[in-house]
């Protein structure tokens, strides 16, 4: 199955120091991120929450090496993001599953193996499809799948190169509540099994609490990290945890942190 990433003792696998980012458009310059410092440890699940437009996706794109670093320092596995990218460090999912409609589910999952110029030990795509609960669908086309199934396929695609880091930008945002809860628990199971370092963007507080070791709360305009809180809940976590007073306490705390921000 999936190999286990060697858990370096609390080493920062992703380290942002004083990172700022501005977008220049024809009319104005908009500061999306302003002096963000954040460390994500190896094997850690860290969620980012914050108001819309506060720069969560921008932060993720910077880490993935999809945007050039403008100021501050940003290291992934001790190197610049582009290097980590070349070393195949990242698996990515987006809000839109972004499957290629002309490829079958299996061919979509295989895509990273075809394009990544790196010798490694790939994971068997069929085994991954069964891991995400899609066995038997390998010859289906994306338009024949429901939205939730498409996201499962996108998750399998992100895992197929066995990357040490998963970057997930609101992967469940477009789904209905029932499918979303289901997938949330699947992700919990899969990340426990594969020990990935996960950087996860979400708007759902319960989702952040259930999944994360830590939650970074951002404030908007310009985007800053307001605070990072530890989620001290035992693992493995199950659906029962979601009703525990401790769990609800965390959700309440996150909500009030976000509310303070919008009141300010």
């Amino acid at each position: 199955m999936l190999s286990t990433t060697i858990a370096a003792p609390a080493a920062a696998q992703i380290a942002l120091r004083d990172v700022s980012h501005a977008f220049r458009t024809a009319r104005e310059t908009r500061t999306a991120l302003d002096g963000v410092s954040l460390e994500i440890r190896s094997g850690e699940f860290l969620s980012i929450i914050g108001p819309s437009g506060c720069g969560k996706s921008t932060l993720l794109r910077l880490v993935a090496g999809l945007l050039p670093l403008q100021s501050g320092s940003l290291q992934v596995n001790g190197a610049v993001p582009r290097r980590a990218q070349q070393a195949g460090a990242f698996g990515i999912t987006f809000q839109d599953a972004a499957l290629l409609p002309w490829r079958t589910v299996l061919a979509n999952v295989r895509l990273p193996l075809e394009v990544q110029r790196r010798r490694g030990t790939p994971v068997d795509p069929r085994a991954l499809l069964s891991l995400v609960g899609l066995s038997g669908f390998d010859r289906y086309y994306p338009h024949q799948l429901s939205g939730g199934m498409q996201q499962r396929a996108a998750l399998a695609r992100a895992l197929v190169t066995d990357p040490p880091i998963l970057l997930m930008d609101e992967p469940f945002a477009a789904l209905d509540e029932i499918t979303r809860t289901e997938l949330r628990h699947e992700l919990l199971r899969i990340t426990a099994q594969t020990r990935k370092t996960v950087l996860f963007v979400t708007h759902s507080l319960a989702e952040a609490v259930l999944l994360s070791d830590r939650v970074a709360v951002m404030s908007g305009a310009p985007g800053r990290i307001r605070t990072v809180i530890d989620i001290d809940l035992p693992r493995p976590r199950t659906a029962d945890n979601e009703d525990a007073p401790q769990f609800l306490g965390y959700v309440r705390r996150l909500r009030s942190l976000l509310r303070e921000d919008s009141d300010a």
């Binding site: 990218q85 990515i92 987006f94 839109d96 972004a98 394009v115 990544q116 110029r117």
Partner: peptide, 12 residues
């Protein structure tokens, strides 16, 4: 997003 995925995978 498919394009970003390709870039993140360091596709040629």
């Amino acid at each position: 997003q498919a394009l970003e995925l390709m870039h993140a995978l360091n596709a040629s």
